[in-house]
């Protein structure tokens, strides 16, 4: 398994990537009922979906169930729209919102982060270095971009993102004024973009 990742990450990755079907091609194949395409999409994103599900649900069995649910949903009702963003962002939004749903169903009193993605169409653009990169290259970039954030900004971003906490809930938990929390999280997000700029644009 490790060896496989090494191969994908080798200097030939750009060449390898050119030969692999693009996400869009996979979505089209899934729409056409080709289950192998779902297999390829699984290879590409399941690990990320599972990681996120596990982080939010903190329970391997539930994370596994949710990962299965996500991929079966993609198969049954492929509702991905490339004009609305990348496959990765679509899957993360879907996984996070369903995982937090499950948390709530457990009786945890958590507020939803609002309105994440539904709105706003955008135009599709040429592939960015991010889209061409392998999973572990992506992880490396995002990790280092997050590590450059002041720890306060990183902490509130993570609390909002993974725990589905509202800004006022975070303010209460950390005993810090709401205004400060908002500034930290907004600046955190903007800084994150700044740190990732060369990679995603």
């Amino acid at each position: 398994m490790k060896q496989k990742h090494m191969d994908i990450d080798s200097a030939d990755s750009s060449l390898t990537n050119q030969l692999l079907p693009t996400d869009i091609e996979l979505w089209n194949a899934i729409s056409a009922g080709q289950s192998e395409a779902l297999g390829v999409l699984y290879e590409r994103y399941a690990s990320l979906v599972y990681r996120l599900a596990l982080r939010i649900l903190a329970n391997p069995q539930e994370a596994e169930d949710l990962t299965q649910e996500i991929f079966l949903t993609l198969w049954r009702s492929n509702n991905y729209n490339p004009a609305r963003g990348s496959t990765s962002s679509f899957l993360m939004t879907m996984t996070r919102s369903r995982a937090i749903d499950r948390l709530r169903a457990r009786g945890t009193k958590l507020k939803f982060l609002q309105r994440w993605s539904q709105m706003m169409m955008t135009q599709t653009s040429p592939p960015t270095p991010f889209e061409m990169a392998s999973l572990s290259q992506r992880s490396q970039h995002v990790n280092s971009a997050l590590a450059q954030l002041p720890s306060s900004q990183r902490q509130v971003l993570e609390m909002a993102y993974y725990d589905g906490l509202s800004q006022s809930e975070i303010a209460r938990q950390l005993n810090i004024p709401l205004g400060t929390i908002k500034t930290w999280s907004r600046q955190g997000l903007l800084n994150l973009r700044k740190n990732l700029k060369d990679f995603i644009e």
């Binding site: 996070r96 992880s139 994150l192 995603i200």
Partner: peptide, 25 residues
Amino acid sequence: VNRLHEVLELMPYALPEVPLPQHLR
């Protein structure tokens, strides 16, 4: 808005790698 949303949804990439359950696929 869309670009920033994409950035936010990159956060899970920073999560530690965990092996996928073998049988799941």
